[in-house]
Design a protein around this nucleic acid. Sequence first.
DNA 1: AAATTTGGTTTATAAAATAAACTTGTTTAT
DNA 2: ATAAACAAGTTTATTTTATAAACCAAATTT
Lengths: 96, 96
Amino acid sequence: MFPKLDPLLHSELRLAVMSILAGVDEADFTYLKKQTGATAGNLSVQIDKLTAAGYITVEKGFKGKMPRTTCRMTPAGQEAFGKYVEALREYLSASK
Amino acid sequence: MFPKLDPLLHSELRLAVMSILAGVDEADFTYLKKQTGATAGNLSVQIDKLTAAGYITVEKGFKGKMPRTTCRMTPAGQEAFGKYVEALREYLSASK
DNA sequence: AAATTTGGTTTATAAAATAAACTTGTTTAT
DNA sequence: ATAAACAAGTTTATTTTATAAACCAAATTT
């Protein structure tokens, strides 16, 4: 009845990151930080987890002289995100 | 942009319990256990948390000679659940 | 009457989230 | 030129959660 929710996505911050990346092709660390309101430390950790899961890729470079970390969602990430959304709807729609 | 998700509801098992109770007036422990597939221990703990939050009430009685624990969602729980669902939609719909 | 099942609770362990502190380098002010 | 402040993160430590394992009391079955 209730499908298992991908624990990697069932996290407020990781979900927000994925939600942003789902609509935007790429986003860098500071942008994600601003949009989510997360602390840098927390964001760094959660980005690592999404990367380890193969849901996003991280590219490190420089914008001028400042370091810049760019994130993109992978196809695997898109699929996982889609499935998570579907699963979640089961939980939410059970009410009506 | 991303509303805070009520941490009490952003839990797979507690969400499932609330989702069931949202549609059903009352449900007892064993029913919830069966429907969610949770272990009794986990369910007991999570029911306690929902009770402590005032989201559900627990009534203990007997069905014949066997103990029976009946759960109901409170108005506060309904409101919190509704808000949570709304908040969550923000996360999910940001993608499209 | 011994073993099993029901309906749980309590306690212990593992995993996550979060924050605080630290690092490396850059820009700005002195 | 150097000290102070800031940017962009990472690492480590702390707190909170989730989950499972162990336990308990009473009822039922063999």
